[in-house]
Design a binder for these strands. Structure first.
Lengths: 223, 223
DNA sequence: CGACCATTTGATATGGATCAAGCGATGTGG
DNA sequence: CCACATCGCTTGATCCATATCAAATGGTCG
């Protein structure tokens, strides 16, 4: 039961992700307990011990921190297949919440660490997830020193990167979430998106679904 | 030679750092090759393979990235005893330069990885350095969404944290370096520091040496 | 239909950027 | 030894991007 082969895992109904390339994802698939969270619910809190690791199945998750002055800083958004909760320290520096109704798979960190000590590939995979997280954060820093338009465009491109080209981009989070991610106000986000729409770079089908007309053109705006 | 005991290392002339708590530091002490860099010189470049790890002996180091529009973002400053260059990926995301004339100890990453595979304490220590790096970057994000005064105060407190209380804080980097670290202009940094001085929160002995009058008071300003 | 909530849009205020000049050290050549 | 150039920093005046304050719109659910 615990030692299901990769082939069996792969044939278990997820044709998309090539699991052979993602042994960690496979392990979570097998060991993970499914959990669901209603939109807005907390998955874990800032300061709690970080003893679980999560993989998004459906929905979207945000990590965030409440600053001393009451403002809210969003660290990242996680979409299906993304892994989150793997902190290096013992405690979570940010809390995590469901943006929409969300289904995740949860595994105990200790279970993974145990596996990793026997399986170099797993250990390496955990390291890789961590590396991705670091790269994400470094990019976030570069984001935050740009103009409002550049931040918004970068955000759109980031979301576009998780969507097949030509398909409308879904923005499940609220404008307030976007603002708190980009370090802007909700009004500035709204206005900037409206301007991009007016100029033809993007087109909103609904406030949460947008078509990027010229992804390369957009990239030019966002540097 | 390679297997010097911790006690021997500790007695080798560095009373300050309790090496027993920092086996990695001890290893670098023993294995590291000393290198010196004149002020302003590049230690490694953005995009180069990350196959060495550095420990600052004397001087100060900055890591930085040149943005597409030519602006410069500084990632971190490293003071004596700080370790830098340990990237998770294979390549350096940022380049590193000597802020002042700087002496470092260099070890090949492969040497450490080899040691780590035999010595859990070393591996754990490398993990810890990485964790510190992540925490640093997360703090940097929180910095960048605050007001100019808050950013400057946070920076001063960060530098104060590396200085014995009551002792003047040395700021070896230029105002431009500080500005590029905080995402502000040099004028704003200069003005903000001048205001803090005028208000009595700090007092400049020279432009690169400042006394923090009331560290707690300063902390209040910086949240 | 009406209330509510997220979003958009409008008007104004302001913090920090930009442009420009001044100042004080340090170093160089006459 | 002193005039002068240079460089990093500071200070001043103005401008502009974004925040703030305020109101209108539109979709959703009872």
């Amino acid at each position: 039961m615990m030692r299901t082969s990769k082939t069996e895992i792969r044939s278990a109904g997820r044709p998309r992700a090539p699991l052979a390339d993602h042994p960690l994802a496979g392990v979570i698939e097998v060991l993970g307990s499914p959990m669901t969270y209603r939109a807005g619910r907390e998955i874990y809190g800032q300061g709690e011990p970080a003893d679980c690791l999560y993989k998004v199945v459906t929905g979207t998750v945000r990590t965030l921190k409440i600053l001393a002055d009451g403002r809210r800083q969003i660290g990242s958004f996680y979409s299906p297949d993304d892994i989150f909760g793997l902190e290096i320290g013992t405690d979570h520096a940010f809390s995590a919440e469901a943006v929409t109704d969300t289904k995740v798979l949860v595994v105990r960190r200790s279970a993974l660490v145990g596996l990793a000590s026997h399986d170099g590939a797993i250990a390496q995979e955990m390291w890789k997830v961590e590396a991705g997280e670091l790269a994400r954060i470094q990019n976030h820093i570069l984001l935050l020193v740009q103009s409002a338009q550049e931040r918004v465009v970068s955000f759109l491109l980031e979301m576009a990167g998780r969507t097949p080209a030509g398909r409308p981009i879904e923005l499940p989070m609220s404008r307030q979430d976007i603002a708190d991610y980009l370090g802007l106000t909700i009004e500035t986000v709204s206005r900037t998106l409206a301007t991009l729409d007016r100029e033809g770079a993007i087109h909103f089908l609904t406030p949460h679904s947008v078509v990027v007309r010229q992804r390369s053109e957009l990239a030019r705006l966002g540097v």
